[in-house]
């Protein structure tokens, strides 16, 4: 297992990392250790998938690294920034300026058009979006002709594409995706994964994705397997079949 831990001296290539991350919910008899000493790094310009059975702590890990939740103990670094030292205001700014998010559902503000949703973080920061980059992102996800539509006028797949575009629009250090294809049919899901893959390969973006779908994980450069709040394995250059096999082994 030691081989999976990032070398702390090579942080330049690590976009974010968790060190001895522990997250405990409840106390006493109802205590649940969702994360039980996780140490893991996410490399820059790579597509990392986090997998594991329900209750393995994969979503909790994502939330904690993304600054949406706080650890009971241990540290999370985004770049050089220790999230544990940040208050709500700085965490919010960090999410707005340095991170991107794609959730399983309800990713878009229903009252805003697709374009307004994409540029929302910049708008919240009171910044003008980088037009050249924005065009690139919009073309990558193929949304040029849908920009004026409200979410209710878009299909589920289109909505997720808008969400991916929004996550990429402010050129974040990392994009966190929590089951981004969970609510989509397989074709729309493949499209989203394709876009995410291209964002990493063509646009040098860093993506961390939680999924329970081996097919989705097959699009990643690397898969980290969690079980009972610990990192139990990892796999580089995965395919859906290998991931499925590994999951079966882990399940035994």
């Amino acid at each position: 297992m030691a081989s999976t831990a990032p070398d702390p001296t090579t942080t330049t290539t690590v976009a974010a990392q968790a060190i001895d991350a522990v997250k405990v919910y409840g106390s006493g008899a109802t205590e649940v250790r969702a994360l039980d000493g996780v140490t893991v790094g996410f490399d820059t310009a790579r597509f990392t998938a986090i997998m594991g059975p329900s209750g393995s702590g994969k979503s909790t890990l994502l939330h904690c690294v993304a600054g949406l939740d706080t650890l009971t103990s241990g540290r999370v670094l985004v770049g050089e920034t220790d999230l544990g030292t940040l208050g709500d205001r700085d965490l919010t700014r960090l999410r707005r300026d340095r991170l991107g998010f794609v959730f399983q559902a309800f990713n878009l503000v229903p009252t805003l058009t697709a374009l307004e949703n994409i540029t929302l973080p910049d708008a919240l920061a009171g910044r003008k979006p980088d037009q050249e980059w924005l065009d690139q992102v919009i073309d990558t996800v193929g949304l040029r002709d849908r920009l004026g539509h409200r979410p209710s006028e878009l299909s589920g797949g289109q909505q997720q594409r808008v969400a991916v575009a929004r996550a990429l629009a402010n050129r974040p250090e990392i994009v966190f995706a929590d089951e981004p294809t969970g609510n989509l049919d397989s074709r729309a899901g493949r499209e989203i994964l394709d876009f995410m893959g291209r964002a990493v390969r063509d646009l040098d973006q860093t993506i961390v994705m939680v999924t329970h779908d081996p097919v989705a994980a097959g699009y990643a450069d690397r898969v980290i397997f969690l079980g009972d709040g610990r990192v139990v394995d990892e796999m580089h250059e995965p395919t859906a079949e290998r991931v499925l096999d590994r999951l079966k082994q882990l399940g035994d």
Binding site: L68, D88, T92, R93, R96, P121, R166
Partner: peptide, 16 residues
């Protein structure tokens, strides 16, 4: 609730 949570997640401050 969810919409406001989303806004907070993508960077809306409490004051905003």
């Amino acid at each position: 609730t969810r919409e406001l949570g989303l806004l907070r997640a993508v960077g809306m401050t409490r004051e905003q």
